[in-house]
Design a binder for these strands. Sequence first.
DNA 1: TTGTGTTTTATTGCCTCC
DNA 2: GGAGGCAATAAAACACAA
Length: 334
Amino acid sequence: MMAPGMLYGGASNFDGVFSQKQRNMYSSTTATAAKEHLGPLFAPACSSSSFLGSSSMVSFRGVNGGKRPFFDSFDQEDNEADEFGEYFHQAEKKRRLTDNQVQFLEKSFGEENKLEPERKVQLAKELGLQPRQIAIWFQNRRARWKTKQLEKDYDELRNRYDILKSNYNNLLKEKEDLTAEVFQLTDKLLVKEKGNGQLALCVVQKHSDASGKETVADPISRVELSNVSAAQVLKQQQQPEDLSSGKSDIFDSESPHYTGGGHSTFIDQDDSAYVLETEQSELSQDDDEKFSKTILSTANQLGKCDDDDFPVTSTNLSYFGFPVEDQGFGFWTY
DNA sequence: TTGTGTTTTATTGCCTCC
DNA sequence: GGAGGCAATAAAACACAA
């Protein structure tokens, strides 16, 4: 790919003399071919300042144990002959910049990572390098900086993600704990109600108004559940379809309050029963509202047994097991 | 010493800006 | 259209373990 001999004193010296296209064109030819084409242009490049610039590219790490300061390269009197020899011996090799040259460039890069033409020439002079070498070094340095920056950004994002994930997991755990506590308290409440010889059971049916919008659930019945355990109630919650089809353990034909047919029984704490029509068509809008208020009021009264700060609303009714999404009948107790 | 992976220097081709 | 920047890549230099 790269022509031997083009590394130093070849393509580098095109800088400031040829356009990039010309640079590319010539850099893809051999050094010999280039010399044939350019002729005299190579002469100044291999002599005086240009040559010195090239000679300073020799890696003194390898040549001189890596300790030779780059300013030594300006010590023309002492080194010119050696460098001249080195140049011809190592012209075909790629040579690294000295530690001091790199240090100098790093410092300059730290001040400003873009290179204006004046600064490029100035740095080239100070370091005894070709302006093009300075430009290449800055370009490569910017690429390295960008890579490092990307790694840094990635690490930072990763850390933030880990923190957020940890917070999320903590919240999830907290939610589970709170849910478990709610169930525990609910169970306690049921036991308490049971101890009083009464347990309220609400059968809720969801309605839709004319526009299809869901409205507040209605209480259909309320029965005495003195001998129904919380576990049974929960089981009922999980199988509401059985209830609507008359398969309920609670509302079967053997239940003391089974009324059969299309009617459900509503029994208040005085054991006085109301017979309510379950057919939606037979319930007026006023009835809907009345029932809604009744169920919310009842639920709130039950809720007050343990927590006054959590009033039951049509919104959170479902949290207590009152469905606002399911169609048809269902049993919920609390 | 040698094989292998990493770093550094440099080229190439494309793109944007003026 | 030229200048300069950038991404991709080549290849030399270097580091290091076996």
